[in-house]
Design a protein around this nucleic acid. Structure first.
Length: 342
DNA sequence: GATGAGCGA
């Protein structure tokens, strides 16, 4: 039996004769495990852990040897061996849950070639230090999903694996190797993502670049500011302000968004990258196409690839000879208008 | 494109 967690955060040496066997298929039995693990040496005991009342398998087991050599041999030989067609995962038993909880030295790998299996992943990543646990994510028929996980014993192994392998070609595919993050942590880090460039819209037509500079420089040093101007030379009533410091940009957004200036309620937010903006526009466009198709099937025309400066009125005039127009709207200056004929 | 599961008698 493994020792209980040591008090006071003292690190216990790993017990070298007790193995934890995880990822068990639900029907795997003690005797199957006994038979398999006996190949590596004299097994002292085997137990599939089960729910106390339902007796259903919890999907993991312990296998104990008397000789550390046998246990080591079993780890090496039987890790990822299939039982009931599912690869088992073998590690030393460690009853101290702290490293599991902290998730330290845990890395994530994606864009893996589908031919890379558990063993290959293990062999590739064990060059950087001792691995506690490793696996390729598989679908229900045992095909690689193209990503996987490695948890090292030591943080420095994880760091050097990330540094050395991120972006490297494995079987001709450049792999991503980065820290493992739970979904929530990923979402949070996106929220806190730093930005310098601020987008401001709903400006009054008379608001100039100098006005923007005046207002925004309250919050920090500005490296550039612009009010976007249409073909007609008039303000398009939006602009961008770039800050030297992301903290200042965040503060400006925080304090200026929704503020009334010259009778206009400004929208102030993080400026989207071009790709983000295009995605957004595309989504909105597809939605408005759907809505319009539902409402006015057969009566509307769609135009795309319009010049930025085209207005509702210009289009209405252009199409007016062909019938009565009930509505004519440029949905986004970048792509689309929708015309409705009766 | 993708971010598991996980420690007993």
């Amino acid at each position: 039996p493994a020792p209980a967690p040591a008090p006071g955060g003292v690190t216990q040496p790993l017990p070298t004769t007790s193995l934890y066997v995880g990822d068990l298929e639900a029907n795997v039995t003690d005797s199957q495990l006994y038979e398999l693990f006996s190949q590596a040496g004299q097994v002292v005991s085997v137990r599939v852990c089960r729910d106390v009342t339902s007796r259903r398998s919890l999907g993991y087991a312990y296998v104990n040897y008397s000789s550390p050599m046998d246990a080591a041999r079993a780890m090496e030989a039987l890790n990822f061996a299939p039982l009931n067609n599912k690869p088992i995962r073998v590690m030393y038993s460690n009853r101290d849950p702290s490293s599991r909880r902290s998730g330290s030295a845990n890395i994530f790998i994606k864009n893996l070639d589908k031919t890379i299996d558990n063993k290959t992943l293990h062999d590739t990543f064990s060059a950087f230090g001792a691995i506690l646990s490793c696996k390729v994510a598989m679908d229900d028929i045992g095909q690689s999903k193209g990503f996987g996980f490695v948890q090292y014993e030591k943080e420095e192994s994880a760091q050097s694996a990330m540094k050395s392998l991120n972006g490297m070609l494995i079987n001709d595919k450049p792999v991503y190797v980065g820290p493992f993050l739970r979904k929530q942590e990923r979402d949070n880090s996106f929220d806190k993502a730093k930005f310098n460039n601020v987008f401001v819209k709903n400006l009054s037509e008379s608001t100039t670049k100098d006005d923007l500079v005046k207002v925004f420089s309250e919050y920090g040093t500005i490296t550039s500011a612009v009010v976007m101007i249409g073909m007609d030379g008039k303000s398009r009533c939006f602009g961008f302000v770039n800050f030297e410091s992301p903290d200042d940009a965040a503060r400006a957004v925080e304090e200026l968004n929704g503020k009334k200036i010259n009778d206009k309620e400004w929208y102030v937010g993080r400026a989207q990258k071009k790709s983000e903006r295009e995605m957004d526009l595309k989504r909105r466009f597809e939605q408005s196409m759907k809505d319009a198709a539902d409402k006015y099937q057969g009566q509307n025309l769609y135009l795309k690839n319009l010049d930025d400066g085209i207005t509702d009125d210009q289009l209405r005039e252009l199409f007016s000879n062909f019938g009565k127009i009930t509505s004519c709207k440029v949905i986004s200056c970048f792509a689309i208008i929708l015309l409705l004929f009766v």
